[in-house]
Nucleic acid binder design. Structure first.
Lengths: 127, 127
DNA sequence: GCACATATATGTCAACATCATATAGTAGTT
DNA sequence: AACTACTATATGATGTTGACATATATGTGC
């Protein structure tokens, strides 16, 4: 979510900041997609927006994929592409599947925290 | 959530990183507490752990409160305290209540994204 | 030759989270 | 009087992340 701020003294709007986003949420989303089949950065970008409701910064996505490879969750190989530039194709690893599992459990906990907050908020509103 | 990593080549464990935490989640939690009554940093720390399931770094909390005051969501006054050091007491503002409302709607959206992921993950597991 | 979609990648920078450290008042104990 | 513990606020240092901009290159259609 993007927030724009209004300076209360001069009325000028200043920098917008992130709020409410789940840190590195894109990584389990990528791994979930890859667990269904190998893919490449550009293709993942399209699938992430379609299936995960995630708008992705493409530069961030490529950097994230390299980081995930460094961490051992995915592996990559260059794939010849006659219809355009060659592609770096990513495949999920055993460690990647393990991380996906722990990420799911972590996100379940996060989900509970958010629920707890929303319940408290709604209770407070009706009071 | 804290993750510890294992280097795949040498087996050494390396830096742990954050994952799955909601960015600046503590702020709506603080505002929800303050909407029930004014409080100070140290008191909020205890309430956050008790009511919001949030373990808080106390230094981060004080810095967050100053930031929230700068952003106009809370206001503070020094309160005399005979039983110990004086306290800076925070009160929620009109803008703070507005932000709390938009935060709730933002977190509802985040909640939907997480659900969507978890459903996809579970479907994939059973397949 | 040019624009456009595809495709990967890096430079920069501000904000945030974490950890450590500094300071100080009050109360109880030795 | 010195100490320990608890309460209370605050800042310094640092690494990671996310956002935005920019660079580079290939293939297709006009």
């Amino acid at each position: 979510m993007m927030l724009t701020y209004m300076c209360r003294t001069c009325g000028c709007s200043f920098r917008s900041r992130n709020f409410g986003t789940v840190e590195r949420f894109v990584e389990p989303c990528i791994l979930l997609l890859l667990s269904k089949g190998s893919s490449h950065g550009y293709g993942l970008m399209e699938d992430l927006e379609k299936h995960c409701g995630e708008k992705v910064d493409i530069g961030d996505l490529y950097r994230t994929l390299r980081r995930m490879e460094r961490d051992g969750w995915v592996e990559s190989d260059w794939e010849k592409n006659d219809a355009g530039p060659d592609r770096r194709t990513y495949t999920i690893t055993r460690e990647g599947k393990d991380f996906l599992k722990s990420a799911a459990s972590s996100l379940t906990r996060t989900d509970k925290l958010i629920h707890r907050f929303l319940e408290g908020y709604q209770k407070n509103q009706s009071a």
